[in-house]
Every structure is written in C-alpha cells, then in structure tokens.
Nucleic acid binder design. Structure first.
Ligand SMILES: [Mn+2]
Ligand SMILES: [Mn+2]
Ligand SMILES: [Zn+2]
Ligand SMILES: [Zn+2]
Lengths: 130, 130
DNA sequence: TTATTATTGCGACTTAGTTGCAATAATAAG
DNA sequence: CTTATTATTGCAACTAAGTCGCAATAATAA
C-alpha cells in the first residue's frame, strides 16, 4: 500500500513533532483544532508506528501514548525504542527519558518490543503537592 | 478495613504462589477450578496489590498481569518492583525477570511505580517458529 | 479528465476492567 | 452457642479505550 499525503496526517504529525512528550489519543485530539475523527486518529497513529515514524508506549492505566521518534536508538540502521518514559500521575504528561536500557535475557529469547514506564510526580507537581 | 479469610482469596493466592509468572485475569480464572466471579477476582487481586502481596504489570496490549511478590526488592524495609518482565507473543506467558533496574530521573522527580515489559518470543516458541 | 484505491467519517462493536447493590459469611461481642 | 457487625461475594449493568465494516471522499496515477 502506497501512502498518500492528507491533511489529517500532517496535522497529527505536526502536533507530535512539536513536543518531546508522548501524547494519548485524548491529549492529541485536544491539540488538533481541526476536527479529526477518533478512528482516523488511531489509524493514522498506527500507520506512523508501522512506518517507524512514531512509537507507542503503554502507561500503567492501559492507555497508549504516542511520541515522535527523535531520541530513538539506531544501531546498524535498525530502529530501536529502548528508552524509558515517565508519567506524572498529577498532570498526566508522559515524557521520553534519554536513558537507554539493555536488559539481559535468557538464552534463545527473541525481543521484538520494549515498554518502559515509570510513574510518579514531575518536579512541578511534586512541589505543588505540599 | 480489617481483612477476612475467604476461600476465593486463598485459592487465588495459591495459584499465584505456584508459579513464577505474572498471570492475566483470564489465565488465572482458567487455573481456578473453583468458580470465582470475574469481579471478585479483580477485587481480590487489587486488595493483594494494596497489601504488597502481589504486583501488577501492564503488558503492551493494555492487559494487566499479576504476580506473587517473590523476587521483589526490599531496600530498608520498603517494597519495590523494579524488575523487568518478558511477555511471549506466541504462548502469552509473562515471566518476572530477575534483572533489577534503576533509571536516573531528573532532579525533583518522585517515583511511585515501575512498569517494565519486554515482548518477543520465549526460547521454546522462538524455536518452533521456524 | 478519468480511473484507481488509500484514507476518512460514522456508527456499531469488542474487550478489559469497574461499580452499585443486595445476599452471604467471616469474625467479634455477648 | 447465639447474635450482631461488616468485609466479601455474585450478579448485572456500566465505562472507557480501541477496533472494524462500510460507504463516501479525495490523493495520485494513467
Ligand atoms: Mn523511535
Ligand atoms: Mn513485589
Ligand atoms: Zn506533573
Ligand atoms: Zn512462548
């Protein structure tokens, strides 16, 4: 399937490019002044993931967040998402952390995906807390 | 609220104690020959999590898995779940890996939870694959 | 200009997990 | 042992996130 250029796609990609955060569907839709259908947003995001333009992270509430691939590893031309994410329980932001991880696996195991998420309170919210 | 001893609870805990894996609701229910209601299973599991008896991990399909706390860190009497998990895309098992991780966070950030999950194929399934 | 087909919008659907409420039963009190 | 208290359970209804089928739209190729 050859990809086509559409407004919805460029709008969504621009929102993602404009931040270093991983956005939930909800957050993304809020940023899109142009009304784009829910299902379309999900389809576009999944296409971006397939194309390696964006990566998806699952938070511990089971909600997916999408981030533009900027700080991702590219060892010998292979794209890897082995970095951690931090989710603030108060303000809800999910940020990509720089820190890369390599976890030793039992012999014979094959890795296809990595999902690392730490939750807590970001500096701002931790201070406001009390 | 003081806890009471019930059959459902001991059954569920026994299933979890008998394995080193993190079980989904579905997998757990399959192990329970005694019919326990879906909602009850979830409530029991969440109670166990509150009590620090069990920990919950989210897989990248947004499905939660529960494991008995055996290999969890206990620095100065504080219970921590900073280990990784491996989920096999074929057989669906989620295992707790020994490997502990400490991720450096920006100053002022406060951690409350850790969720680390690697997906791929376990040795057995990788070999069968082809 | 027309044909091809990727993409969109809409609604219906699925799946995982939660919640309200009345019934049940574990523990404490008498 | 009997009764009272209330944590726990089962059931059904509900929620929320994400997916899917399908007809309409529109980007690209011919
Ligand atoms: Mn990436
Ligand atoms: Mn633990
Ligand atoms: Zn925050
Ligand atoms: Zn396997």
């Amino acid at each position: 399937m050859k990809r086509r250029n559409t407004q919805a796609q460029t709008d969504i990609l621009n929102v993602l490019k404009a931040t270093d955060r991983a956005l939930s569907h909800e957050q993304l839709q809020a940023e899109l002044e142009a009304k784009v259908d829910r299902a379309t947003i999900y389809r576009v995001l999944n296409r971006f993931c397939e194309d390696g333009l964006v990566h998806k992270v699952m938070d511990d509430d089971g909600k997916q967040h999408f981030a533009y691939c900027a700080g991702c590893d590219k060892p010998n031309n292979k794209h890897q998402h082995n970095h951690f994410h931090f989710k603030c329980r108060k303000c809800g932001t999910v940020e990509c952390l720089q820190h890369k991880v390599h976890i030793p696996l039992p012999e014979g195991y094959v890795v296809t995906d990595f999902n690392g998420m730490i939750s807590g309170y970001c500096k701002k919210c931790a201070e406001e807390q009390q």
